[in-house]
Design a protein around this nucleic acid. Structure first.
Lengths: 377, 377
DNA sequence: TTGGGGGATGTTTACGTAAACATGTTTGGC
DNA sequence: GCCAAACATGTTTACGTAAACATCCCCCAA
């Protein structure tokens, strides 16, 4: 009825814009009532402004509102403006739940992770969130309380009902090794820092090459061998770095000192540094924080870096260049890892499941002042 | 028809369970077809298993499936098991979009932030995500490209259409000062690290008290005055710390040296440290990273810490205890800030808009080895 | 035996959106 | 001046879920 009235008006009195807009005002009051969240017939509370509200105010059908909202062609300029005005007046915002239901997509990526404060995770996640936002996707964090199989399994199981189109898994990988721990079938996923390359697409820093560069650098400086301060055995990255370290030494025919382990923290690096043998002249720490601890331990023991002992780290965190001395370390590009994850995941969402495989991001050695040529005693 | 058949069966032949389950098998094939994502009449692809699919397989109505899924009473045990079996067979997962649409809630909190790698943000966000998960909420990151007013305004505007029930804003606050930058009305919000306490509920570390403790500590050690290495002027936290530093000095009747500014990075702390005057004996750096840079600069200049110069930081990041020397610093509880944010936000969602105001989290000074009594020259 | 109460289950409807289809209106070519 | 095509707009329907209401059956008390 009303729609027709308006339409007739526009038809026959076209050009008299003020006439056309009059009915709009008449409806303002009624719509304002809705707007405040008044009770509706159903007895439930009307949560917010819907397309129907806008349509009523603008005197058009909700489909037309939809067309305007989505910028589709086929809406006359005067109608479009009327709808836009109604949207502004009511403060209309599209309802993403309804959109998701309609399209079967959430435009959201999930990130399953254990800790955010651990080494490069926050940078990776930041890059993921940024890259995802660029592509119009939101990023949802799915924290896993403790890195136990049960927890991870639980997170994976819940995955199916989470409002995400795909997930990026950033978890120490040995938890994924168990065949019992698997993502629900049909869930798009990309895994970071893992050897799950046979089951999922994996994006990772080239841990092995980075470690090789570090150890070779020390050998080239004339050190007879290199001690290694590794991360936790549960960590895939840690194991890869340790393996590469060992391999380089063996290939060079050097003795392979016993490995020492830390938990990635500077404190653990400090403790490990205190136990280094007196004849140790070169240390490769599995991350920069532990290297920092080693620097402190060596300092307390009166051993100068780099004159007496050379130290190399891994990660190249921002602070590394301000250590005493500035740390020679392996630079890894966390942001690039994040970006590639998002890219791979979006490809997967668009084109269906991707083949498993590993995509390695390059690393390079940054030489600063914590390494120097070896002077034989 | 089928539903009735089954019901009759159950009714009259009750007890013969095998009979009851037979029809289930008959339906398996048809439902499997759906499951794979075959075309449905509408021409669109059926995305996933819905309650209707489960209902058909179990031979009940979808409402009964809903009751089982939500653990409601009023479903006979045998029926419940039949439904559960069907769910398992089809791998049913509730559709969160539909749920959200139905309930008008998303069970999701948004976090608007500029950077994740900056000082304590990652720890705050981690705590937020964890706490939110405990309450059954997911956490969505809403990164803001650059901290410009336009970007923040854009993020705020989009807020209304994001799938979140409330937001936590972690952004240097001066951007919020402009009255033009405001969250859409009706959006539940909590702000971190800000002076927006008059417009929104705010949770923050007690910056002022932390800074006071740091400066007083240095004065009590006998230093005539304290130099300050501040963070960026745009940062609210930075300004609060600087103000407290100045106030303590003035109250003690000490000279107030010119302020130096960094950008929170160790590198900027290093540069600032190189410019410190020769008669400087005590430095209060606005964060630990800059303090690290100062330590390096002083070391290069041949000034010993703490013998010649005392240095205090702020944040108490994990590495601070491994600096050379281990850093005296103000400990702040990022995780507690995150937890309180979530709590305040959930309260708001449950009970309606909260009164503006500021909730301060305590800080305390951690005395290590970078501070020592002043020896007059 | 009967009628009513209550429990188990089915049916209808609404949430907000947008594709598909239907209707009505204008325009242009002959 | 008329018809068809192009265009603007309205109507129906489905997405998956769950509240509200309706129905059916059984059992028990009178």
């Amino acid at each position: 009825m009303f729609g027709n009235d308006r339409k007739c008006l526009r038809k026959h009195v076209c050009g008299i814009v003020t006439r056309v807009t009059r009915p709009v005002k008449e409806f303002t009051i009624e719509t304002q009532r809705l707007r405040g969240g008044s009770d509706v017939p159903g007895g439930r509370r009307k949560q917010r402004v819907s397309m129907a509200d806008v349509a009523k105010l603008a005197g058009v059908s909700s489909q037309t509102v939809s067309r305007v909202a989505n910028g589709q062609a086929g809406v006359v300029e005067s109608t479009r403006e009327q709808v836009l005005a109604a949207m502004r007046e009511l403060g209309y915002r599209p309802n993403s739940a309804a959109r998701s239901l309609r399209y079967g997509r959430f435009n959201t990526l999930g990130v399953i992770l254990f800790g955010l404060s651990s080494t490069g995770n926050s940078r990776t996640v930041e890059a993921i969130a940024t890259q995802a936002a660029t592509a119009g996707y939101a990023t949802t964090l799915i924290p896993v309380g403790a890195p136990t199989q049960d927890n991870v399994l639980g997170a994976f199981t819940r995955m199916g009902e989470l409002a995400v189109d795909g997930v990026i898994v950033i978890i120490e990988i040995h938890l994924l090794d168990a065949t019992s721990v698997a993502l629900p079938p049909g869930v798009h996923a990309v895994v970071v820092d893992s050897d799950a390359g046979e089951r999922y697409p994996v994006v990772d820093t080239d841990q092995a090459d980075g470690a090789r560069q570090a150890v070779r650098h020390l050998l080239e400086l004339g050190h007879p061998t290199v001690w290694h301060l590794a991360g936790p055995a549960e960590s895939y990255a840690s194991e890869r770095r340790a393996l590469a370290w060992r391999t380089v030494l063996e290939e060079a025919g050097r003795p392979v000192p016993a490995i020492t382990r830390g938990d990635w923290s500077a404190e653990s690096g400090y403790r490990a540094g205190l136990t280094l043998p007196a004849d140790c002249t070169a240390v490769f720490a599995a991350n920069d924080q532990m290297a920092l601890g080693v620097l402190r331990a060596l300092h307390e023991r009166g051993r100068r870096v780099p004159e007496d002992v050379s130290v190399v780290g891994f990660d190249d965190i921002a602070d590394a260049s301000s250590y005493l001395p500035p740390l020679t370390t392996v630079h890894q590009d966390f942001a690039e890892v994040g970006r590639r994850c998002v890219q791979a995941l979006l490809d997967q969402i668009a084109s269906g499941p991707a083949a498993p495989g590993t995509d390695l991001v390059r690393t390079h050695l940054v030489i600063r002042n914590s390494t120097a040529p070896h002077h034989s005693v």
